[in-house]
C-alpha cells in the first residue's frame, strides 16, 4: 500500500454564516499529483489556507504524515516540509529574482541576527552556499538569465515560475499549487505543466488546484472534485470525466 502524506478528517471551516469547507474527508498519497477542482467559491483556497496554517479549522483534523498540524503557525508548518504558492502571485517585488529564491533557503540555513550583524556577507560560507543553491533552482526553472532583474518587473508567467522555484528551494516534501496557470497563455501553461511533472519526478508530492481541465487531466494521478466545501467525487482523471455528479456541478441542472 502507498503511504499517505496528507489527510483531512471531517475538516470544517465557517466564516460567520458561510460554510467554506464542509466535513471534508480526503487523503493524498505520497509521490502523487493530486488535483482539487471545483467551481469558484467551492472552498479550494480555503483548504490550502487551512493546510498551511493561515486559517485554523472550525472543526476536524489535518494530518501530515499522521501527525495533526491543526494548531501550528504557518512558519512551523513550512518547517515540516509543506510549501505553497498563492492564487494571487506573491513574489517579493522589492527584491531581485535571485534574492527571491535565496529567501526560499531560509529554513535550510541558520545564521541569526548576531552573527549576521558582525560578519559581512562576503566572509560568510553559508551565504555562498545559499547563493549556489538558489542558482541551481533558478537553472531548474530555466530563468538563469533573469537572476538580477527585480522580481516585480517580471511578466506574470515568470512571476509564477519564480514563486514555484522559491517554494522548491525549501526542499519541501509536499507542495500546494493554487491555480498556477491562471492568467497564463497556452505556451506558459504548457511550461508550468512540464515543470510540475518534473517536480513529481524529483519525489515531491504535489497538490494542485487549477481550472485548466486539459492540464489537470494531463498530469494528475488523482482528481478530487469539491463543491460547496465537500467532496463530491474522487478518482482517476478518466473516471472523473464521465462522472455524472461532476458534470452536474459544473454545468448546473
Amino acid at each position: 500500500m502507498v503511504e499517505t502524506i496528507l489527510e483531512y478528517q471531517e475538516l470544517q471551516k465557517n466564516f460567520g454564516g458561510v460554510v467554506a469547507v464542509n466535513k471534508l474527508n480526503m487523503t493524498v498519497d505520497i509521490g502523487s499529483i493530486t488535483s482539487i477542482i471545483g467551481p469558484n467559491g467551492a472552498g479550494k483556497t480555503t483548504i490550502f489556507n487551512l493546510t498551511t496554517g493561515f486559517l485554523s479549522p472550525t472543526a476536524g483534523n489535518i494530518k501530515f504524515f499522521g501527525n495533526s498540524i491543526n494548531q501550528l503557525k504557518p512558519h512551523n508548518i513550512a518547517s515540516l516540509g509543506i510549501a505553497r504558492t498563492f492564487q494571487n502571485v506573491q513574489v517579493f517585488d522589492n527584491m531581485s529574482v535571485l534574492e527571491n529564491i535565496m529567501v526560499g533557503r531560509h529554513l535550510r540555513s541558520k545564521s541569526g541576527i548576531l552573527s549576521s550583524t558582525i560578519i559581512p556577507p562576503f566572509l560568510r560560507k553559508e551565504e555562498k552556499h545559499i547563493k549556489r543553491e538558489a542558482e541551481k533552482w533558478l537553472e531548474f526553472i530555466g530563468m538563469a538569465d533573469d537572476s538580477q532583474i527585480s522580481a516585480g518587473s517580471l511578466p506574470l508567467g515568470k512571476q509564477r515560475m519564480l514563486e514555484i522555484a522559491r517554494a522548491l528551494a525549501m526542499e519541501p516534501k509536499l507542495i500546494l499549487f493554487d491555480e498556477p496557470a491562471s492568467g497564463l497563455n497556452a505556451r506558459e501553461t504548457l511550461a508550468i505543466g512540464e515543470l510540475i511533472g518534473k517536480i513529481k519526478e524529483s519525489g515531491v508530492t504535489v497538490v494542485l488546484v487549477e481550472h485548466d481541465m486539459e492540464l489537470i487531466m494531463d498530469i494528475s494521478d488523482i482528481v478530487a472534485v469539491i463543491n460547496f466545501g465537500t467532496r463530491i467525487a474522487m478518482g482517476t482523471p478518466a473516471e472523473i470525466q464521465i462522472n455524472e455528479d461532476v458534470i452536474t456541478a459544473y454545468l448546473g441542472d
Binding site: 506573491q90 513574489v91 522589492n94 545564521s111 549576521s116 560568510r124
Partner: peptide, 20 residues
Amino acid sequence: SRVGRGLRALHGSEDAANSI
C-alpha cells in the same frame, strides 16, 4: 544576510514570507 533578506521579504509580502 539571511536575516536581512527575511526582513525584506516580510516587507514585500508577509504571507509569502510566512509560507517559506
